[in-house]
Amino acid sequence: MRTLYFDCFSGISGDMVIGALIDAGADPLQMEEELKKLNLNEEYTLSWGKVVKNGISSTKFDVILTSKSEQPHEHSHSHGHKHSHNGDHSHSHEHEHSHNDEHNHSHALHNHHGSRTYKQIVEAINEANLNESVTNMSIAIFKKIGEAEGHIHGLPLDKVHFHEVGAVDSIIDIIGAAILIEQLGIESVQSSAIPTGSGHIHIDHGIYPVPAPATLEILKGVPIASNAIRSELATPTGAAIAAVLAEKFGSLPAMTVESIGYGAGTKTFENHPNVLRIIIGEIQ
């Protein structure tokens, strides 16, 4: 069985997942074409390229928002900027999108209040005519986040507005990850325990402890690993991808390894490579 293992020794975020999948051999250009079905392409461009994190060559993936998109809130963790922690700018590729279809697109995801509802996001995914498994994966991940946000704020799922997680970058991260996982022919997913980090973060509602309440809610039932790093290591998007897709949490299973990918996070830590490692192989 073709299995993907998330080795989350430095946590997990949506952009790290996509970076690691590209690094393991997935085709980002095919993902980019599929994402155009959402009719959001006038709101972003995508960028990916090699960086070195504490001696590990890895792939950094970014969603760069255009002036037409709503700017993400502070809690949109690692996106929307060009990062060059190690001077490895020369390998980065940016792909401009054509805007000539912008007059016939669905308006499900277009609003101007800085937030999108769970219902709007699900409608847009269903209207996009994506592969069935991509549609199902994406909706399940959004539902996991929506239920957690609803629980924290005391709202039913249909009333949940995605301020932080509904920003364009997270929509791209979740659906993009589903597209690449399907593309790679993954039949099962496993994961290590998830380190959440420690300290505090600034989000819409003020200063919150790490892990943020929504992240912790998403990780109910998932083993959390202790980690001394004072930073947010698991984002709501990354936590939901692991929580929804992984059938089992634990150490690396016995497998014949076929490919390995390293996805770079935005932050750089002094003594710790901030990357997500994925290992893909066959389990007998």
Results as ranks from 00 to 15, higher is better:
Glu127Leu: 05
Val168Gln: 12
Val17Asp: 03
Gly146Asp: 00
Ile56Cys: 03
Gln30Trp: 11
Glu43Arg: 07
Tyr44Trp: 09
Pro28Lys: 05
Glu70Asn: 15
His95Ile: 13
Gln284Phe: 15
Thr237Phe: 09
Gly263Leu: 03
Ile152Arg: 02
Ile139His: 05
Gly11Lys: 00
Ile12Glu: 04
Ser191Leu: 10
Glu164Gly: 10
Phe142Asn: 00
Asp101Ser: 14
Gln190Glu: 13
Lys36Thr: 01
Ile279Trp: 03
Ile179Leu: 10
Thr66His: 13
Ile152Ala: 10
Ala108Thr: 11
His75Trp: 07
Pro211His: 06
Leu180Ile: 00
Pro209Leu: 06
Pro236Trp: 05
Glu127Gln: 15
His91Ala: 14
Met255Tyr: 07
Gly197Asn: 06
Phe162His: 09
Thr135Tyr: 07
His103Leu: 13
Ser47Cys: 11
Gly49Thr: 01
Ala26Asn: 05
Ile279His: 02
Ala228Thr: 15
Ile172Ala: 05
Asp88Gly: 12
Gly265Asp: 03
Ile283Pro: 00
Ile181Glu: 04
Pro209Val: 01
Gly199Ala: 04
Arg230Asn: 15
Met255Ala: 06
Gly281Lys: 07
Pro211Thr: 00
Ile121Asp: 11
Ile229Ala: 06
Glu74Asp: 11
Glu132His: 09
Leu4His: 11
Gly154Ala: 04
Met137Asp: 11
Ala26Tyr: 00
Ile175Met: 03
Arg277Tyr: 08
Ile174Ser: 04
Ile171Met: 07
Asn126Leu: 12
His81Asn: 12
Glu43Asp: 10
Leu109Arg: 08
Gly281His: 04
Ala124His: 02
Ala243Leu: 08
Ile229Leu: 13
Val165Glu: 09
Val160Asn: 04
Ser198Arg: 06
Lys36Tyr: 01
Val168Cys: 12
Ala148Lys: 06
Met137Val: 04
Val275Gln: 07
Cys8Ile: 02
Ser98Lys: 11
Arg230Ile: 13
Glu282Cys: 06
Ala124Asp: 04
Tyr208Glu: 12
Ile224Glu: 02
Phe249Gly: 08
Ala167Arg: 02
Gln183Pro: 01
Phe162Glu: 11
Asn100Ala: 15
Asn136Gln: 13
Met1Ile: 03
Ser58Trp: 03
Tyr5Thr: 01
Thr268Trp: 09
Ile207Lys: 15
Ala24Met: 06
Asn100Arg: 13
Val189Cys: 08
Ser10Lys: 03
Gly238Thr: 05
Lys68Arg: 15
Asn100Met: 10
Ser76Glu: 15
Phe142Met: 07
Asp62Glu: 14
Glu127Phe: 00
His151Lys: 13
Ser67Phe: 15
Lys60Pro: 02
Gly55Phe: 03
Pro223Thr: 02
Pro28His: 01
Glu127Ser: 14
Asn129Glu: 15
Ser13Asn: 05
His97Thr: 12
Asn54Arg: 05
Ile12Trp: 14
His110Lys: 10
Val257Phe: 12
Thr45Trp: 13
Ala239His: 02
His77Leu: 04
Ser76Asn: 06
Ser98Met: 12
Asn271Arg: 07
Lys119Gln: 12
Phe61Ile: 01
Asp7Tyr: 04
His113Cys: 09
Thr266Gly: 15
Tyr208Arg: 00
Ser259Gln: 11
His89Val: 12
Gly199Cys: 08
Ile279Phe: 08
His205Lys: 02
His103Ile: 11
Val165Gly: 04
Leu40Ala: 05
